[in-house]
């Protein structure tokens, strides 16, 4: 989020406060918490956003299966469902902005999946980030950081979008991501 807003000297402290006194970093050198920044076209933004929503949904379904707390389980299941609505918004936006009446299946297989090749699976990503899956605080903090990336993507896309209706859709999705973050933050405060 910071790197996309003109901040140049940003460092992610590996392992956070827990590793303050350790000399060994956790995680690879090139994996950070920032989205790629700013030069994507509207079409690319929609495709990336759709992939992000798909990844978020997988992540939440995984987490719902892994946490013990009924409240957290319920929250993750709800968050997973909301990502489907975001995907529907984005597909509609894609159709309107490109004039291509593509089906959901074709959009997913021909546009989104090719753009995701070479990346990490959700499980691989989790292994790299290495959250303690027995710790709800770790899981919720990771979810919060991923939502922050989604929010960042949509806010920057909305800033660049000169079309009023697509801009409104992106801002609406951004606001929903912000609401997700508030819910997650509330849940963290109850731990």
């Amino acid at each position: 989020m910071l790197s996309g807003r003109g901040f140049k000297n940003i460092y992610n402290m590996s392992g956070g406060i827990r590793d303050w006194n350790k000399e060994i970093a956790v995680g690879p050198q090139d994996l950070g918490l920032h989205l790629f920044s700013g030069s994507e076209s509207a079409e690319e933004t929609i495709i990336i956003g759709f992939g992000l929503e798909e990844g978020l949904r997988e992540f939440y379904l995984d987490m719902a299966a892994q946490v013990d707390s009924p409240e957290a389980k319920n929250l993750f299941a709800k968050l997973a469902d909301i990502e489907i609505h975001h995907q529907e918004h984005l597909l509609k936006l894609y159709r309107e902005s490109t004039g291509k009446n593509v089906s959901l299946e074709d959009f997913r297989s021909e546009k989104v999946q090719p753009s995701m090749e070479g990346g990490l699976t959700t499980q691989q990503y989790l292994q790299l980030y290495n959250p303690d899956l027995g710790s709800e605080l770790d899981i919720l903090s990771l979810a919060l950081s991923i939502e922050a990336q989604a929010l960042d993507l949509y806010l920057r896309a909305a800033d660049r979008d000169t079309d009023q209706s697509s801009r409104a859709v992106l801002q609406q999705i951004a606001n929903e991501e912000r609401a997700h973050m508030a819910r997650l933050a509330e849940l963290i405060d109850t731990l």
Partner: peptide
Amino acid sequence: MKWKQFFTPVSNITGEEAKQLV
């Protein structure tokens, strides 16, 4: 679904490196 495209390189530093930066 893959995640790589959502991340760009950012400097990861250890606690010791953070202290050195200060």
